[in-house]
Design a protein around this nucleic acid. Sequence first.
DNA 1: GATGAATGAGCTTTCATTCAT
DNA 2: AATGAATGAAAGCTCATTCAT
Lengths: 201, 201, 201, 201
Amino acid sequence: MSDSDRGAGRAARPRRADARRNEKALLDAAAAVFVASGVEAPIRDIAARAGTGTATIYRHFPTRADLIIAVYRHQVEALAEAGPALLTTSGTPQAALGRWIDLFVDFLVTKRGLAVVLQSDDPCFDPLHSYFLDRLLPVCTQLLDAAADSGEIRSDLDAHELMRGVASLCAGAGNNFRYDARRLVELLIAGLHRPHQPPAR
Amino acid sequence: MSDSDRGAGRAARPRRADARRNEKALLDAAAAVFVASGVEAPIRDIAARAGTGTATIYRHFPTRADLIIAVYRHQVEALAEAGPALLTTSGTPQAALGRWIDLFVDFLVTKRGLAVVLQSDDPCFDPLHSYFLDRLLPVCTQLLDAAADSGEIRSDLDAHELMRGVASLCAGAGNNFRYDARRLVELLIAGLHRPHQPPAR
Amino acid sequence: MSDSDRGAGRAARPRRADARRNEKALLDAAAAVFVASGVEAPIRDIAARAGTGTATIYRHFPTRADLIIAVYRHQVEALAEAGPALLTTSGTPQAALGRWIDLFVDFLVTKRGLAVVLQSDDPCFDPLHSYFLDRLLPVCTQLLDAAADSGEIRSDLDAHELMRGVASLCAGAGNNFRYDARRLVELLIAGLHRPHQPPAR
Amino acid sequence: MSDSDRGAGRAARPRRADARRNEKALLDAAAAVFVASGVEAPIRDIAARAGTGTATIYRHFPTRADLIIAVYRHQVEALAEAGPALLTTSGTPQAALGRWIDLFVDFLVTKRGLAVVLQSDDPCFDPLHSYFLDRLLPVCTQLLDAAADSGEIRSDLDAHELMRGVASLCAGAGNNFRYDARRLVELLIAGLHRPHQPPAR
DNA sequence: GATGAATGAGCTTTCATTCAT
DNA sequence: AATGAATGAAAGCTCATTCAT
């Protein structure tokens, strides 16, 4: 949709096919390089792998943040859509939250380099932060609120902080042996349980 | 004794005062720059702030890791010594562990940039990792074991992983508003509680 | 053909002219600087003289050895081709050898700084040594063998050692007055003559 | 002599012993380091090996050339004295020349780094050149003249050029396998023989 | 007299980014 | 539109030399 209905007539100029293909190649290349060398990899490496010139990247993605967003857009969208679905299909809100966090962790751990950059202060990544928050914060908030409302978990932690915490734990992995982000996140989530939920209230 | 009794006058250890002062200046400068720009800050910046040339840094601290270790040595030692003491003075082993982790977090959060580098894979930081592990791992292990033995917490997490997890959460802070590492660590520790403490079973 | 028939106009190989010109400028500058300051001259000096940035040199010639080879390639090739030709046109194999050595000396003495680097152990020059040996050793060997076979000269010196000896004598020249490399090499070659050529055999 | 008869009285102030010992240590250290790393080795290395500060070197030998001269003085003197002696003891002037050149080569090849610096144009080595020429040129000239007078060798090469040639061939050695300076020098000397010794005279 | 600490220039190399074609 | 060449700003590190004690 976004790209095909370019208003009136003149549909698809001959050049457009090239540009399209190029953008695709760029995204694939970037994804691969990000996995291999992290999100801060030299622009040149990405261009080289895509078989384009460096300037082509700048044309398509003026900012590094733009490129990162584009690379991970599909998965972020999927993550966003998974939230409400889980709330429906999971037994309890808490279970839904746990499941969603699992997905989030899988995403971050798999696409390494990303978690690290999500911790960064560098203003050049602000758009990236914004994008993630715009898409995921509402979802996570909904899950958190649901679980809190059901009395299963503490209610004094907001979604933003939780997400940053999870991302931080994922960033800690590096290439390191002897560090299991999933397990630590599990602990963190376990810590959300109502301490001794005053049952006989 | 060490420096003051230079026997018959004939200066035996000249210039030491200057060098001493310089080293101090260097450490102070490094500490400040580390906080401001992270531990990977350009050597030149540190030298500039200390009012020395770059080579002076290399003389005192041949390696960046050496400098970092020197900057944080005092506090790491204090941390190491606090462990056994807390075990004595705190009510329960778990309380001791919690208190010690608090101190660890205070340290990491205060001396920012440090937490980030503790996550790094870069081999140039290996000596730094080694130093931290040598000093703190035994302490943390002792606390963790004590708490596990008393049945208060799960026993399936080793001290190394716990410390990395805590460090990661601290690294997430950046200069960011709206991120409270202490609170997240608290959650993580809470997650260590025996799930359903099978006490009176 | 190679560059001119770019089909339908749509520039297929743009910018090449500039790059070409730049490379030329770089080579010229390098040649000049090499003569003036030796082959170890700062990259910056060469860039400055060529009117380019330093990175431009790295793009064209990733390694210092690459640059040196490029600078002297034409002349080395000419030298290599001269060998067989001389063997044909000169009266005796010994004369051919002598003439070729003359050319070799002319080359080294003219392009000063080169002779010095050919003596160097520095591994960064290995590719340079390899190039010279690949191109010239076979030629020199052929000449030397021919002269040895004809009984005119001793046969106990291999071409490699001879070439190094000649290069060394040329390196001795520096900018010095009162040192005539050609003459010394002449002596060296004269020393190759059969000691007492078994005349009445 | 040079150092002990410092005019009237006050012979040997207490400090002199120290200074003397220091100078000796410096020379020994320099000799060792020169062999290991060449004559251009960092001043610091020499000071370190001598167990002194760097400034001590500057006090004793203001210039690098001064230090080099001092290190090799004994051997240069020995070389200088050997000349006339050889002329007496050897069968022919030519034999004497050959023997002396052998000694010269042994010296240069053994004390590597020296030969290289003798080729250098760098004005900072001028005093070094001067010293060598002052001491050795007359000796070599005498030997050369004697051999020329006896009709054994060509007379169109002066001692200066010969010495530089020999030094150059020695400099070519580096740490390289497959390069025998002695052999090449032998060839050079062989080349000095009367071309076709006026047979039909 | 000796010391060794401090200096700061200088070199190489890497990249993000711009720009001419 | 796309290209990739050129740019120039960093940054780390090494040494010869000076200088305060």
